[in-house]
Every structure is written in structure tokens, then in C-alpha cells.
Write a protein that binds this DNA or RNA. Structure first.
Lengths: 146, 146
DNA sequence: GCATTTCCGAGCTTCCCAGTCGGATTTATG
DNA sequence: CATAAATCCGACTGGGAAGCTCGGAAATGC
């Protein structure tokens, strides 16, 4: 049970984009370099984010991408689900299989379902903007300390 | 992001044990047969549950296992963590690595941490006894319908 | 002693994640 | 128009983990 690195990379990219929002388009190469992420790999995640409508992009030289909305209007949940699909996927409920011949399975699926709801609730309450703000806090804290 | 079948098997076994609590020891073979779980595989999970102190067991012929406490005193969280370790494991926070050279990573780790807390909170609030009761409800519902 | 059970460790197969890569398409610029 | 730079698309791969099997040792009732 862990979050994929895809989502971590995706979130880091979104933070980077949020920091430089308004500066026009930013290339995947640049984001990758700044965040130390394999470039060709990040490319794919950005494409996925674009398909999900969280990012807009333009091809060609001097192309790049930027946030599709304000950083405070994009939740962590959206980013995760754009990259990895549902936060918790269950064969029984999400997919069409629904092979609950055994009643006990259904009961357990309800627990997975409940987990899903709780997680989505939380992750949906955190925005990219929150992350950026929190990051500033951490940086300031470190500066004061040193 | 999904729960392992180990945990599903483990929970189903616990439900089975809860249903027949007080009837003495029950063999892994029997549980496996009833719940249609690969026997030798279930064996291992039961051993893990025993090591975690959720189940007591006795070897030898007419050996078997039973719940170590009341079904209302065992949470789903305990079962899951006994079988799969922490619900959400993060290299940065749980383990010793703590390689947050990049500040952005730490911010994200806080989100994982938050998810962990929420999930544990929820899963810790559901007991095996709850599952059994809920299962009865479902069965009754089906009976009325038909 | 023998059957039956839990217990321990090793091994095996299949699948998926993380990452790479070749190349097609689009576009600004000279 | 040519070229360089960027996104985009699809296929491929290596490694590691999940799911499961298996052989056999230790315990225990009959």
C-alpha cells in the first residue's frame, strides 16, 4: 500500500508550475531538471495531466505547459486520479466483475469502499496552492533555524 | 493503490473465526475450504496473525486456532497491519532514509502522512464484530428480497 | 507410533511499476 | 522553407514484488 512515484512526480511538477504561474509556458525538460526527475518519464505524466484537463500545453519550439486553472482550484486528489486512476481500486465495486458469490467478500469490499471515501475526502481537501504555501513555511522555518 | 489479497484473506479468516467463536479450535484447512482460499497460503497469514497476537493457535492433531480476544476488540486496522505492515508506507517518514534534500518532497510526504492518519483512523474504527453484524444484515436483506 | 496439525523457509511464476527509447507531429524562428 | 525544439504516441524492458506452491520440521492427541 503506497502511492506511486508517478503521483509524486506529478505533484512535484504541479508545484513547480504553480510557483511559476503567469510566466508563460514551461518545458517538461526544465521541470525535470529542477525537480530531478527522469525527463522522458515526466513527459508522460504531464501528458496525462493534460488529458485530465489539469494542465494546458503547446507543442513546437518555445512550447511547454502551464496550469489550466488556479493552483487553489486543483486538488491533490485530481492529480493522483489523473495519473493512477482511482485512489483505491476494487475489482468488485469499481469494475464490472461483481463476483460476490461469497457474502464475506462484499462486507470487506464495503470497508475498501469506506477507505476510498475517506481518502478521497481528505485528498480532495488539499490543493496545490496549499502545498506551495506549506513549502514556503518549511523553507522559512529552515532559514530561521540556520 | 489497492489492498492486497493477503489482507482480504486474513479478514475473511477472522470473520470465519468470529462466527464460530467459542467452538474451540478451528483448523486452517477448514477455514480455507469454507472461504475458498488456497490452504497453504492462508496458513501463512494465520501464522502472521498469531505472531501479531490477534489469534491463538495450537499445534498437533485436533489443533487449530481461534481469536485471541473478542471480535469487538479486534479492528480491521490491526489485521491489515499484521499482514501487510503499515497501511501506507513512505520511505521518508517511516523508514530511516529521510533524504528530503528537495523540499517539495517533504511537502508531499506530509500529504502521504495525512492520508495515513485518515486511513488508520477509519480502519481502526471498524471491528471484526462490525463486519460480522453487517454480514448478517446483508444476508437477511437477501432473504427478504427473495 | 502414527496421523494430523501448525510452523518455517525456500522457491517459483506472473504481473506491474518505473524507466527507456524511437520516432511522429506541431510550431516558432531565422 | 529548413531547422531546431518542444509535445505527443506507442512499444519495449528490467527488476521487484505479489500470490502461491512445496518440502519438511516440530508439536500433539489418539
Amino acid at each position: 500500500m503506497k502511492f506511486s512515484v508517478k503521483t509524486e512526480y506529478g505533484l512535484r511538477a504541479m508545484i513547480e508550475l504553480a510557483l511559476r504561474n503567469g510566466d508563460g509556458l514551461i518545458g517538461a525538460r526544465e521541470i525535470a531538471a529542477r525537480q530531478q526527475i527522469p525527463e522522458r518519464f515526466l513527459e508522460q505524466q504531464i501528458t496525462a495531466l493534460k488529458r485530465a484537463g489539469l494542465v494546458i500545453s503547446q507543442r513546437g519550439s518555445s512550447g511547454g505547459c502551464s496550469l489550466a486553472r488556479g493552483a487553489d482550484e486543483i486538488t491533490v486528489l485530481e492529480v493522483i486520479e489523473a495519473l493512477d486512476g482511482l485512489v483505491i481500486d476494487m475489482d468488485c465495486i469499481n469494475n464490472k466483475i461483481h463476483s460476490c458469490s461469497q457474502v464475506a467478500q462484499c462486507v470487506i469490499q464495503e470497508v475498501w469502499q469506506g477507505s476510498q471515501v475517506k481518502l478521497r475526502e481528505y485528498l480532495g481537501s488539499v490543493t496545490i496552492s496549499d502545498l506551495v504555501k506549506r513549502q514556503e513555511q518549511l523553507k522559512d522555518g529552515a532559514r530561521v533555524k540556520s
